[in-house]
Design a protein around this nucleic acid. Structure first.
Length: 436
RNA sequence: GGAGGGAUCGCAUAGUGGUCUAGUGCGGGCGCCUGCUAAGCGCUUACUCCGAGUUAUCGGGGUCGAGGGUUCGAAUCCCUCUCCCUCCGCCA
């Protein structure tokens, strides 16, 4: 959520910034509602102030009436005064209620409108309307030369009997996977490996959150109200399945004021993630790349505003370190304005090399949300002096497990159909190669 | 699922219709005093919205888990909801 004061005071600057992401949100309606809101509020508060002082007067006079009766004096005159004040207060009450009835829908619609405005891109974000304008920041590792035609990971998985998509479809439907034997163990090994690195080497606190959350949590991180179509919902209980650990982990500190000396707060979490993938029909229907349910190890940071872009660099480096240790070739790209997610001010995607695709494929997305989520979630920090301020939030995948499995199978495959286990996983898996 | 109890300013608690502008203790901050330390003394210590002002700040509204209601007036009375605790039932 953007600051209404920023929209009010510098609407042209906001419009220009949003144009950078190809969003033509009409700020006029917001500005109009804001204007009406402030006018109504002024009128209501003036009447409230008057009513408060009238009621206070009633209280004082009532005490005097009591005193007069006790002393046997006549209280008739005082009681007439009390009657007048009560009447005045009562009619003010009606006027306030009337104005309140006008104000409420204005405030509701203003909030709804604000929740639909995307974040402002950072000045370093490349200009462009779609993915073709994304910038390659760096490439790490060289794609391997194959002396044979590399197979797709879904064929490798089925040939080795470690991934079964047909049975997954029987159990649940399309876009689900059943891992078996060494496949299931590889999935588990990767979860443990990533959590171990992020918590032991990079200082993240490991958490294990709920994967069903309420709508307040989904709204705080920006999935709701705009992207309900992408989420699985448990309607009977008004709960939602998380599309990423970002949601429950960021919401750990919803409504909190964090002492500045505790910042940066860093969490890593493994969770399954659930996405409806509505609108992705026919795209990447095979394999592990696009699933309704997948595992992910997530990184989340709460930081002081001044440090958030430096923290984005280290968060991205923390995610990259996993690929380096797994010795998988990858590149880092900076998303252009048009490709940026709704809540993000800046995003680096990390893309891993997939031989069968003969291209780089997203395996992690690392974003700085600045105060966009913090404002929705009311997450603040208390500086050494002065009022509480909004933190900046960041998160990134460290990494998506299913896509990592796909990358390992494709990059480490051998001509005989077996797959070499990456060095760092050998102790986790207790095997050197996966073969039939 | 059933029955009962609870939610107040960082923490603990007081407050059952009008000096509650929410008291007190602890904790925190500032200052005074004191060879040092400890103690003592004084002051101070929530957030938010609207308006005014160059800042400091000032005026007003709101907030005692949340939302409604009764009333001239609600922390206090009534209703609904959320969460926590105890007991019963069920259960990995």
């Amino acid at each position: 959520m953007l600051d209404i004061k920023l929209i009010r005071e510098e609407p042209e600057k906001v419009k220009e910034a949003l144009r950078k992401r190809g969003s033509d949100v009409g700020l006029e309606e917001i500005l109009g509602q804001d204007q009406v809101r402030r006018e109504l509020l002024g009128a209501i508060e003036a009447k409230r102030a008057e009513r408060n002082s009238a009621s206070e007067g009633v209280g004082k006079l009532m005490r005097e009436v009591g005193q007069a009766r006790k002393e046997g004096r006549s209280s008739a005159e005082l009681e007439v005064e009390v009657g007048k004040l009560k009447k005045r207060s009562s009619s003010l009450g009606e006027e306030i209620a009337e104005l309140d009835n006008h104000l409420r829908p204005v405030e509701d619609s203003l909030r709804e409108l604000l929740l639909l405005v995307p974040n402002i891109p950072h000045e370093t974000v490349p200009v462009g309307q779609d993915a073709s304008k994304n910038e390659i920041v760096r490439r790490v590792g060289d794609p391997r030369e194959f002396g044979f035609e590399p197979k797709a990971h879904w064929d490798i998985g089925e040939d080795l009997n470690i991934i079964d998509f047909k049975r997954a479809a029987k159990i649940a439907g399309a876009r689900f996977a059943l891992y078996l034997g060494a496949g299931a163990q590889l999935e588990r090994a990767l979860i443990n490996f990533m959590l171990d690195i992020q918590s032991r080497e990079h200082g993240y606190t490991e958490v294990f959150p709920p994967v069903l959350v309420n709508k307040e949590s989904m709204t705080a991180t920006g999935q709701l109200p705009k992207f309900a179509e992408d989420l699985f919902k448990c309607a009977a209980d008004d709960l939602w399945l998380i599309p990423t650990a970002e949601v429950p982990v960021t919401n750990i500190h919803r409504e909190d004021v964090i002492p500045v000396e505790k910042l940066p707060v860093k969490y890593t979490a493994y969770t399954p993630c659930f996405r409806r993938e509505a609108g992705a029909h026919g795209r990447e229907t095979r394999g592990l790349i696009r699933q309704h349910q997948f595992n992910k190890v997530e990184l989340v940071k709460f930081v002081e505003p001044e440090t958030s872009y430096a923290e984005l660099e280290t968060l991205t480096a923390d995610a990259e370190s996993i690929l380096q240790k797994l010795e998988l070739p990858y590149r880092v790209i900076s998303l252009c304005g048009g490709d940026l997610g709704f809540s993000a001010a800046k995003t680096y995607d990390i893309e891993v090399w997939l031989p069968n695709y003969n291209e780089y494929k997203e395996i992690s997305s690392c974003s700085n949300f600045e105060d966009f989520q913090a404002r929705r979630a009311n997450i603040r920090y208390r500086p050494l002096e002065g009022k509480p301020l909004f933190v900046h939030t960041l998160n990134g995948s460290g990494l998506a497990i299913g896509r990592t499995v796909a990358a390992i199978l494709e990059n480490y495959q051998q001509e005989d159909g077996s797959v070499i286990v990456p060095k760092v996983l050998k102790t986790y898996l207790q095997m050197d190669t996966i073969s039939v």
